[in-house]
Design a protein around this nucleic acid. Structure first.
Ligand SMILES: [Zn+2]
Ligand SMILES: [Zn+2]
Lengths: 428, 428
DNA sequence: CAGGCATGCCTG
DNA sequence: CAGGCATGCCTG
């Protein structure tokens, strides 16, 4: 079990009501459960009996108050809109079937939530406002790979960078992705692909095609049922979904087990906008989250892949790899650059919340930076900020101190498989 | 009277039925006349009694056969759609009034066309598939100018280059244009602004905003009646028109005579897309054609202005001026570059026509280039091609030979005011 | 298909 | 606000 990108997950440790690291964990838990309850009903046979037997008993979860605090768990209209695969209609209307309306109440009492096995906690991100993007092979050993390529030219249609674990691909090009499972997942398992903005400032925004490219007149949209979807999968069994709660787009195909003798199954994916599309991706990096889900919509494995859709995959890959190598000589941010980044990030992060926007920065010397925040949720933002600072190589977690009500918050440190994180209070 | 951009106009000379240079002249004539007959009815008082007394008698025009050959003169539905100025409605519906339906037959017999005074021949381009873009002061001495600017910075909102007679302007910026008339035009006169692609390959395409910027959600479209119009005029009396025949957009305001003591009247124009907008201008240069029109829709004066809508008007102006200066050392195209240009242009031009696409290029030496074409209409394309080659400084008219059915075609040469052009047959 | 321009936009 | 990068696309 690896760590999530934003906050670390615990495996056996009890939840700490006072700490904040369990916060995001709970969020996952509750939303996952809601997902399971509400389900997503697809018009083919892969999902059956979705709403059955959710046994209720919960001893671990004692922080049900977060649910209402979180405020996202009121029930919207639970119609799952599903776009059927194209049947070569020429009128291009967006066929949407409303195939299911939950009779479940809007808010599920927290103590009725099921005893869910750890694996199941790894949410199906389709109904999660902040989808999980951590890699997790799961019990079936889910992973992906790319075929080796002839030396990629500047304008090769796609190229995968091992060094960056990133796919560079032309808009509209069919890109073969190999999916591996070590053990056979149950029949009815599906593969889902969903795009998510990588930067924390944009993660909440739904990834769609730009207006120009989703227009009816676009050649690429002829006879396609989902012009607004960024990701396409070349399969007659592909279904284009719009999550009714979050509005997020995804494409789903039945997961076919590799043929005997083959270690993987190949799906062709197309990405239908440029990363630079104005009013669309708008130069904001994205990743594709591939999830293996069983017929109840539970996630069996997940693999997030950074992707850049561009005109010159070869060139851009080379550039990014060169940049990364240059950066490998570690390089510290200046006091000013860290301050600026923190201020910008905090403005972005706090902007759309009812939380206090107060953030102070100061530095004792050039090595340690201090932030002061209030409120429980802020811990989550601090983690995002910390990640961003680290990613930009401005500082490491060790260099960042955070205070809440005059008490220092300690960031949990990413650890290896099976580790626990810690988040408590200590005197300065 | 100056020459049109594509073919030269004759003033007193008789039309030659065998030649082709009179072709485009006739086109102007006939379309202008159609314009006058069908008219454009605006919902305010500027145009009245449009359809009255068109006396019919024509001796000069003896090539009526071109009319049907040209094929554009069938009558579509003659409803003029007019977008009223915004009245601050918040629902952003595109208010279109259908204010007039011609009872005129679809095709006007050529010999019924009026004896139109030369000035009136200068067509109101609003209903012309290929709008006139020649500058013509007319009897009221219509012209425009720009105020002097403080030294333009790189990102000044707008800047006018005398050297290039070109306006560089930020998208959405209010740009003050000064309009001059030496004599008072009659009451009811209006000013029209219409955008036209500059390159011959695109002149027939209607200039509109891109999908992204014309979207309802665009901030710039709030309470605006014409989100799809590229050109806006800051005036409560501005009307946004879509020509029913050509689909071309224009904005029209009552032409107010300069105040006493002032030599000009200022209108503020905004240009609502970038020249680079994908699916819109798409990096294709445009010009704005300003026309003064009387209350019958007849053109009283015209001024075409090249314009570049961009993020950095200052920078781009400097770059273009530098380039122009560098080019002033004349520079010839190679045989290959001319060939390539001719082939590309001919493909573009012939592509959407039923005409034979056959074009040969050959060069006797490095100075003379030969084209072979068939069909009457091809002469028009040859002229466009010749202009493009000249513009790119590849060659001059003198260097280009054209053959039609083994007979050499002679291009008419641009001459000064009052000159005649010649287009006949000569032996090689 | 690579070199390099064009052009919006980010950074200091 | 200028320098300069980012990134689609044109040219040879
Ligand atoms: Zn796009
Ligand atoms: Zn635009």
């Amino acid at each position: 079990m690896t760590a999530t990108r934003i906050c670390e997950m615990e495996e056996d440790k009890e939840y700490e009501p006072t700490g904040s690291s369990s916060y995001s964990n709970l969020e996952l838990t509750s939303e996952e459960t809601m997902k399971q309850i509400w389900g997503e009903i697809l018009p083919f046979g892969f999902f059956k009996e979705i709403m059955e037997e959710i046994s209720v008993s919960n001893s671990d979860l004692e922080n049900g108050d977060y649910i209402s605090q979180h405020g996202n768990l009121v029930s919207p209209s639970y119609e799952t809109s599903v776009v059927t695969p194209s049947t070569s209609t020429s009128d291009m209307t967006y066929t949407e079937y409303s195939v299911g309306q939950s009779e479940y109440p809007g808010v599920i009492p927290i103590n009725q939530l099921a005893a869910i096995k750890p694996d199941q906690l790894k949410l199906a991100q389709a109904t999660c406002a902040l989808p999980a993007t951590n890699n997790w092979q799961g019990q079936y050993g889910f992973s992906l790979s790319f075929g080796v390529q002839e030396k990629p030219t500047k304008t090769t249609a796609w190229t995968y960078s091992e060094m960056k674990d990133k796919l560079f691909v032309n808009m509209g090009a069919a890109c073969p992705v190999r999916f591996h499972t070590k053990h056979l997942p149950p029949p009815g398992t599906i593969l889902r692909a969903m795009a998510v903005f990588t930067k924390p400032e944009y993660v909440t925004e739904v990834v769609k095609r730009c207006l120009t490219h989703s227009s009816r007149n676009e050649a690429s949209n002829e006879n396609h049922p989902a012009p607004e979807h960024l990701i396409r999968c070349e399969s007659s069994q592909a279904y284009y979904l719009v999550d009714p709660t979050t509005g997020r787009h995804s494409v789903v195909v039945p997961y076919e087990n590799p043929q005997v003798g083959m270690s993987f199954i190949v799906y062709l994916f197309r990405f239908m906008c440029l990363g630079s599309c104005v009013g669309g991706l708008n130069r904001r990096p994205i990743q594709i989250v591939f999830t293996l889900e069983n017929d109840r919509g539970l996630c069996l494995g997940r693999r997030a892949l950074e992707i850049r859709i561009c005109a010159c995959p070869g060139r851009d890959r080379r550039n990014e790899e060169n940049l990364l190598e240059k950066q490998h000589e570690p390089q510290q941010g200046t006091v000013d650059s860290v301050k600026r980044t923190v201020v910008r990030l905090s403005q972005e992060l706090w902007n759309n919340t009812p939380l206090p926007k107060k953030v102070k920065t100061s530095s004792d010397d050039d090595k340690i930076f201090t932030l002061e925040v209030r409120g429980r949720k802020n811990y989550e933002y601090l983690c995002i900020m910390r990640d961003a600072l680290e990613k930009q190589r401005y500082l490491t977690s060790e260099q960042l101190r955070a205070y809440q009500h005059d008490k220092e918050l300690h960031f949990s440190k990413p650890k290896k498989k099976g580790n626990k994180n810690s988040s408590g209070e200590e005197s300065d």
